[in-house]
Simulated assay, not measured.
Amino acid sequence: MVFRIFKLVVLIATLQITGCVVFTGDEDLSSQNEVKTLLNNHYQNWQGTPYRYGGTTKNGIDCSAFIQQTYKKLFDVKLPRSSRSQIKVGKRVPYSQAMYGDLVFFHNGRKVSHVGIFMGESKFLHVSTRKGVTISSINSKYWSKRLYRVNRVLAN
């Protein structure tokens, strides 16, 4: 128990020192801008990487692996491997309150089938089967019908 508390204190201190941001929703614009910058830089590094079911590398990656790797690299947060497991992490928030870095989940009518990261202005970062790693609009005809929920994982 003491080790877990120590580990948590070290993680929080490390995040503050390195500039990685964790937030609860009450933070100022500068925190959101930091997350936006981290995500945009990460996107530039992965843009166009092809979709591959079960893939985990730049040779090909699927949506849940991309989210898992992004959260680990940028925020040192370990997420489960599948979107159906990732939806169980964090706190559900209304789409109207979505913030940079929140997870957005989509369904195919019966079950969760896709996950991405909210990028502000109704955009999300994800891995498309046609375009690979890309940014898409949640308001598009395709995605707006399938939006299921938003989860906030990054928290103090």
Rank of each mutant, 00 (worst) to 15 (best):
F6L: 12
F6D: 06
K7T: 08
L8E: 13
V9K: 13
V9W: 14
V10W: 07
I12N: 11
I12P: 00
G19A: 13
V22T: 12
F23Y: 12
F23E: 05
T24I: 08
G25L: 05
L29G: 10
S31V: 01
Q32F: 15
N33H: 09
V35N: 00
V35S: 03
K36F: 11
T37G: 06
L38T: 10
L39P: 00
N40E: 15
H42P: 02
Y43K: 04
N45S: 13
T49F: 03
P50N: 05
Y51Q: 02
Y53M: 11
G54C: 03
K58L: 09
K58D: 04
G60Y: 04
S64A: 03
A65F: 04
F66T: 02
F66W: 02
T70F: 08
Y71M: 07
L74I: 06
L74F: 05
L74V: 08
D76Q: 12
L79I: 06
L79N: 05
L79T: 05
P80D: 10
P80F: 11
R81Y: 09
S82H: 08
S83M: 01
K88W: 07
G90H: 03
S96I: 06
S96N: 14
S96K: 15
S96R: 15
Q97A: 13
Q97H: 12
Q97V: 08
M99K: 14
G101D: 05
V104C: 11
V104F: 02
V104L: 02
F106G: 02
F106A: 04
F106Y: 10
H107Q: 14
N108W: 00
G109A: 01
R110F: 09
V112A: 05
H114L: 09
G116L: 00
G116C: 00
I117R: 02
